[in-house]
Design a binder for these strands. Sequence first.
DNA 1: TTTATTACCTATTGACATAGTAGGTAAAAG
DNA 2: CTTTTACCTACTATGTCAATAGGTAATAAA
Lengths: 133, 133
Amino acid sequence: MITTKGRYAIRVMLDIAENESDKFIPLKDIAARQNISKKYLEIIVKDLVNAKLIVGVSGKGGGYKLCRTPEDYTIGEILELMEGTLSPVACLAEEENDCPRKAECETLPLWEEFDKLIHDFFYGKKLSDICKK
Amino acid sequence: MITTKGRYAIRVMLDIAENESDKFIPLKDIAARQNISKKYLEIIVKDLVNAKLIVGVSGKGGGYKLCRTPEDYTIGEILELMEGTLSPVACLAEEENDCPRKAECETLPLWEEFDKLIHDFFYGKKLSDICKK
DNA sequence: TTTATTACCTATTGACATAGTAGGTAAAAG
DNA sequence: CTTTTACCTACTATGTCAATAGGTAATAAA
């Protein structure tokens, strides 16, 4: 399941995209519009800033801004950042896939196919595809 | 993420399909072949029996058998049974989707599209498709 | 220089799900 | 009547999720 972190992150990115101007957008406003606890959103935007998907500026007149145009973000990169992985099974998510049954596993091809389906779906969707503006 | 219950259930179904004969297949044998704790598998086969995907017979010579041919099982029905739902987000999984933002939610179409993708993928795959025999 | 506003930081928590384990009872065949 | 099997109820350690709490640092305007 996609967690609230991933889903909220998309909504935050959308909110910033749709309310873009020359000014920075304070988190307070995003939280109010999206009806999400500002405290919880702090965790999420922190990750977005660290990954350089958005930029944050402190102080009066501060807030957040996109680093690129909405066309240049994929939903996949946002989700993968927040979820850690998009893989549907542990053996495909972990870096070192040391599953001893790997060679003979009959179900592995199924999971690989599903994994690719998910990846292609989300990396094929841009932020601008689900954006009003 | 697909849990071990779902993944093990598929392997159990596959194991029974591939070792089918006139006899019933004891769980002990399945557990040994699949390298999964028999105790844990008990929980899983219980659900499979309750849902009438397999049939179990107690006593000496007992064990488990499929109720249909492998062509007549979809991976989707096995997974959905074990996972409870295949929906990637809570608002599509719960019976009563009373999310107040439903009407104006910009991300809902994305999740609905993803939901359909998952559903079609797993219900389009038959047990026989990933079966050796 | 003070005040208001904003981001940013560390720690904590309750609830719940996952992935099992433990120790039995019932059923059926030889 | 013993062995083999399914079936049943309860328990538990661990981890993740979804937040909350209470601060500090940075910046602009008064």
